[in-house]
Nucleic acid binder design. Sequence first.
DNA 1: TAGATTGTTAATCGATTAACAATC
DNA 2: TAGATTGTTAATCGATTAACAATC
Lengths: 216, 216
Amino acid sequence: MNKDNISKSVIRRLPRYYRFLTELEENGTERVSSGKLAEIMRSTASQVRQDLNCFGGFGHQGYGYSVTYLKGEIAKILGLDKNFKAVLVGAGHIGTAIAAHMKFENLGFRLVGIFDNNQSIFGSKINELEIRDVSELQSFCADNNIDAAFLCIPKDEAPEIVGSLYSSGVRCFWNFTHYYIQGDYPDATVENVHLSDILMTLCYSMNEAVEKNEQS
Amino acid sequence: MNKDNISKSVIRRLPRYYRFLTELEENGTERVSSGKLAEIMRSTASQVRQDLNCFGGFGHQGYGYSVTYLKGEIAKILGLDKNFKAVLVGAGHIGTAIAAHMKFENLGFRLVGIFDNNQSIFGSKINELEIRDVSELQSFCADNNIDAAFLCIPKDEAPEIVGSLYSSGVRCFWNFTHYYIQGDYPDATVENVHLSDILMTLCYSMNEAVEKNEQS
DNA sequence: TAGATTGTTAATCGATTAACAATC
DNA sequence: TAGATTGTTAATCGATTAACAATC
């Protein structure tokens, strides 16, 4: 059933399909064609059909795709029902924002622990969840079968933290640091978010746009 | 001097070159070959040379690249010295994290205003910068020649906010919402960060990894 | 049945990698 | 000079787009 070797580009589009299908469903739309979906996705009908066919024939010729069915299939493909158990390490600004703001239960995860090394915030809560001493991290993860960790810590602290997470069985990392996890743990599943890199690319584009304007 | 049509893939790698060159410089390394740089970048020597040659011949045959010089050139290409004036709209969790955490001055921007619609936080400060009433946003941007806005607001509020920003001359957006700015303003320069999409792709990869393990 | 729209193969386009002459 | 390493062209690989037969 599950085809291998789906390209990263296709995977990256799946959440957007899911998002737009959710909107269509909320509108009460029952069916959608690849053309219409492409319009919403700012894509092409061809790409939509190619993408969806990586996983199986979800459509009906002459009819299109059932919004609810397709949405459900994509949820299954993404694994949004898996509720992987996750901990957050680092309850600074970014960590707190992540913990307080994201609707993990819709995104395939369940946040069950928050850890920090700042004594003064131990015991205070983010969304009902107490902040714990990072020294308990390893035993907590081992005891609770933690699947994933969200890393919102300084880069220099990352190697040690990842080491202890890995040794207690955690293999999945949402990494906001610049530490290169996959270098040290090639079998880890990692998604990096480098906000400063993204901001620099925005700076480049802005700079380009300004120069183009000056020329004309 | 400035070559057009540089592909997005190349641009996205520039911040990483910059980052690693900074590290090399801090180590006191004076020169680096494309091969060595590729190793650090987890790339290939060929790609490094192709990338850098999009912008000009920064190297010397038989020698390699001067770390300091190359770093400087990439900074110029990215426009990191431009210090674009930016405002943050939305001082909730994500907004506060962005404002407090990012070193804008190293990333091409200067944060000069923070706005929110929550009366109870007006006047309180993030990094010396007072939170203002969003009703002053439009006049503030017009008066202060603001280049860019960082949007950390709910999706439904985005169209109105972007409208008022656009009308006071802002053309550059770092967009944490799911509002599709470029649809309404095709000449805007936009970088989107959809954290929930990224988390879903992590869920997919994790799900894949689990299934692969179960098979074996 | 006729019209619509998929699933799928083929063609195109772009990005990465390999090769090598130029040259420091 | 000889060795190293770039800049650049050519070859490969992968992703997107186009085309069309299958079929609801």
